[in-house]
Design a binder for these strands. Structure first.
Lengths: 348, 348
DNA sequence: AAAACCTACTTGTCCGGTTCAGGAGAATAG
DNA sequence: CTATTCTCCTGAACCGGACAAGTAGGTTTT
């Protein structure tokens, strides 16, 4: 079996008791030495530290946690159908940011990828917390009537919500001004001269999708333009279908704003198939920026936000909460529009 | 919900001792009852189970692990520069498969995303194992002179390698017949009539990239065609640059095989920019399939493998190893070519 | 009727840390 | 020269489970 496979394989790992025995001192002294606490002479401390290093000693996370410390683990559940690609272009950069902060602060990430099944997610939190596996969790993909909020609050499980703010919930959250984002997009298109703008949104069950929809409607109204929103799943095929419907209208839009980069790419493919020239005959904007938008030709105009920084912020707010510092509701910096090759004045 | 006090956050979670006290029996009896072990009457067992449910009791993972059980956590380190997008289209489906098996078998995934820094990865394994955080790890992205193999073997840390097989290493591994994959791709292109084929590979530090390179060379030689391999990073810009160089040659290739879907898309963008028609003037194949290949027009011919199944297999082999069953070296099913819109006979 | 054997428990120890309440010996104070 | 206060260290309890060993009480065997 794999354990102790190689000749030198140390099957049993060193414990503090081993160090204490070899140095003929007490476990307590070893503990103080290793934790940088007062109560041991610097000579002893050094001997302990040296030996610990020699033996390859690491504190058992279980023992530490059992003795009352935190577990040093935070949890994240990703609950979307696995075949939905949108999560990827957002999620990896987000995770990268999360991880960076966790690593800096000595924590790790427990990840769970499940299908879209709200109960399973709530259940996971309950188990993780019950089993003392995590110190807290990051909640992503805020939904309407989100059962996760009462669940984590009921459990007393520290959590930070990427979304909100929610009235009636005291959870710290990272909220985005979707109205401002919407204005940036609509302003850009209207400034170019577009008057028939379509908005292909993601599922309205997501709070931010409905906020975006409201945002574009208002931004359009303020400029005397109506923006039509159509809802679709975050998949390529769905975006394809919706785009075809839009372009089949008697008066098709001259600009389409897609909820995600993947959808925008699907839209471009439809245009390519139909010989609709971009951006001459149709302008396209993606609400999410990622490496995908610059991978195609022409590159897609997209609303950019610093996703790793967003993840890093979420992680640091959560770790602070675990440490007892509630940073409350924090506004995420407004996105900026990266104007690329898919937006231009409409054909007359 | 599950916890008794709904009004205030229940900071203290129920323990077996609580159950024992309330039922006026011993902790041991509670333990036997909860673990389905003999030694308690069914009446008592039922009372214990009921109360445990009422109290929302879960076994402390730390206490369990400390008492000798496994931790129920397996680790995965993702070590590539965070701005390399290739990881995403492979990684999320892979993780989905991993998670499914882990969930079925009651384990969780500890994830770490780090930059490409081999020492950091080895160090992470050392810590995770030292701290008893994980029962085993999945190794992805096999490299030449991979320091992780001696590291995990030296530690006695159960691991499964996605790659290999490695001579001199007893690690169970999931190996791929890259030669067969290469033949599939080259055969397809040669059958269409291509004789000038280019292969844009990823960094040769990855074992599988060099195996693929060797594979296409041999497959070409067997058919009397030379296949030229050019190495590039897995980024869009690098693929763009290499593609431009290839197309600038006096006798440019009529078909390009890209190491990844992202690179293939970048190649398509170059062609679009130059007005090179695909597939009439240039055929494109991607060695990796993902949702990206069908997101663009024309859809990209790609070598498909069931990535979730691959992840699931890796997880199950690792869990078996942790349970003491070494399944040795397992060959991954050969990929199949999904012929789509980017391959056609070359222009005469 | 005594021995043997269940069943249904209890007691106590252990895992590997943390931490509290001392205590010995040296240094400082009065 | 004792009293006090350090510094440096020890012993033991504790966290929450798992489990080995022991025990009361009843049932079966001989």
């Amino acid at each position: 079996m794999a354990k102790g496979s190689s000749s030198a394989g140390p099957v049993t790992r060193a414990t503090m008791a081993d160090i204490a025995r070899r140095l003929d001192i007490s476990k307590a002294a070893v503990s103080y030495a290793l934790n940088g606490q007062p109560g041991v002479s610097s000579a002893t401390r050094e001997k302990v530290l040296d030996l610990a290093k020699d033996l390859g000693w690491y504190a058992s996370s279980s023992a530490r946690a059992l003795a009352g410390a935190e577990t040093g683990v935070i949890g994240l559940v990703l609950a979307r159908p696995s075949d939905l690609p949108t999560i990827e272009t957002f999620f990896i950069p987000f995770l990268t940011g999360v991880e960076q902060v966790l690593t800096e602060r000595g924590s790790s990430l427990l990840l769970r990828v499940i299908g879209e099944h709200p109960e399973a997610e709530t259940k996971t939190y309950e188990r993780w917390w019950g089993e003392r596996r995590v110190d807290g969790v990051i909640l992503v993909d805020e939904r309407y009537h989100d059962m996760r909020l009462p669940a984590v609050e009921g459990l007393g499980l520290p959590a930070v919500l990427c979304g909100g703010p929610i009235k009636g919930s005291a959870l710290p959250c990272l909220w985005t001004d979707h109205g401002a984002d919407a204005r940036i997009v609509v302003d850009h298109l209207v400034a170019l001269g577009h008057t028939r703008i379509a908005h292909v949104s993601g599922p309205a069950g997501f709070v931010f999708e409905r906020a975006r929809r409201r945002g574009v409607r208002r931004a359009g109204a303020a400029l005397g333009v109506t923006v039509e929103t159509i809802e679709a799943e975050y998949t390529g095929p769905q975006a394809t279908e919706v785009t075809q419907r839009l372009l089949d209208q008697p008066e098709p839009p001259t600009a389409i704003v897609y909820a995600s980069d993947v959808m925008a790419l699907a839209g471009l493919a439809v245009a390519a198939t139909r010989g609709v020239s971009i951006p001459a005959q149709l302008s396209v904007v993606s609400w999410d920026d990622s490496y995908l938008t610059t991978l195609v030709h022409p590159a897609v105009t997209a609303l950019f936000r610093d996703t790793p920084a967003y993840g890093a912020l979420a992680a640091s707010v959560l770790l602070d909460l675990v440490d007892g510092r509630d940073r409350g509701r924090i506004q995420v910096p407004t996105s900026s529009l990266r104007v690329r090759g898919t937006t231009a004045p409409p054909a007359k």
